[in-house]
């Protein structure tokens, strides 16, 4: 045989075995099964990520608003009322509203469990369904958030703006930590040391009360002067700092 005649002959080679009938179908069946498994796995992780993400978003949003309001405490109180008794009427609404982020998270997790269970059964349609469910959860969570504020507003008989500001009240983040003590006009201010001043206030019943106010609780450049109005909030006899509360004192200028 000539050396150059082999190459063309080799190119005519055919496979020495026939492919069994139905092999492609068998392969596709296995691929479909795998696809369903991968889909379920993917849906599980994306749902989990979505639920965590949105819950974190709600809390994050709450934190941002809290911080914003924190810097403007006195103006918030100005919106509500100078009379501390009005503050107390918000207690019920506040208790409800404080639970909103928790409720939102619970709704998310309940939805998540439902969707995973549902998608495990359906398999192939998982992706589309999960995005619909995710959208639904966002709406429900947002609805519960806004609805909570509206309910709070109705219960306390104020505007939704006031009710929402109560939700993010930086002074009293937990209702159990809040206890209105007393308020009155400042009659005397004395420096105790570099960090503390002693303030005497005239209570509505005509008696006087003297408390030590740490300067750290006051805003920058804020000073307490005679004639100012001072509310003492918090546990009697102490300067407790519940939650992210900066101080028990709410001080108004003249």
């Amino acid at each position: 045989m000539k050396s150059d005649s082999l190459e063309p002959l080799l190119k005519t080679l055919k496979p020495d075995v026939a492919v069994p009938a139905g092999l492609a179908a068998r392969i596709m069946q296995a691929v479909d099964k795998k696809a369903a498994v991968l889909e379920r796995r993917q849906v599980f992780w994306s749902s989990l990520k979505l639920a965590f993400g949105v819950t974190a978003l709600i809390y994050g949003f709450t934190a941002v608003v809290l911080n914003l309001l924190n810097s403007d405490l006195s103006s918030y109180l100005g919106v509500v009322n100078e009379d501390p008794s009005v503050l107390l009427t918000y207690e019920g609404a506040r208790a409800l509203l404080e639970q909103v982020p928790v409720l939102s998270a619970l709704i998310f997790f309940a939805g998540l469990v439902y969707s995973i269970r549902h998608l495990m059964i359906r398999g192939v349609r998982a992706r589309k369904l999960s995005s619909v469910m995710a959208g639904l959860f966002v709406v429900v969570a947002a609805g519960s958030f806004v609805g909570g504020i509206a309910v709070g507003a109705t219960q306390s008989g104020t505007s939704t703006a006031d009710a929402s500001s109560v939700l993010f009240n930086p002074v009293v983040t937990k209702s159990s930590d809040y206890q209105y003590s007393s308020s009155g006009e400042v009659t005397q201010v004395e420096n105790v040391d570099a960090d503390t001043v002693e303030v005497t206030i005239l209570l509505p019943d005509g008696t006087e009360k003297t408390v030590e106010v740490p300067l750290s609780v006051l805003a920058e450049k804020e000073v307490i002067q005679k004639g100012d109005r001072l509310y003492i909030l918090g546990q009697p006899g102490g300067f407790k700092k519940p939650g992210n509360m900066k101080a028990n004192f709410v001080h108004f200028g003249q």
């Binding site: 075995v17 492919v19 069994p20 092999l23 296995a30 691929v31």
Partner: peptide, 30 residues
């Protein structure tokens, strides 16, 4: 699926094994 099966058969010399290998090849590729 044909070339993959042929190659698998070349190594396994067994139709069942070659089919299994061909199937697993595509599942892994997917």
């Amino acid at each position: 699926h044909r070339p993959v099966y042929w190659l698998a058969y070349k190594f396994t010399h067994n139709s069942e094994d070659a089919q299994d290998v061909a199937q697993e090849t595509f599942v892994r590729a997917y």
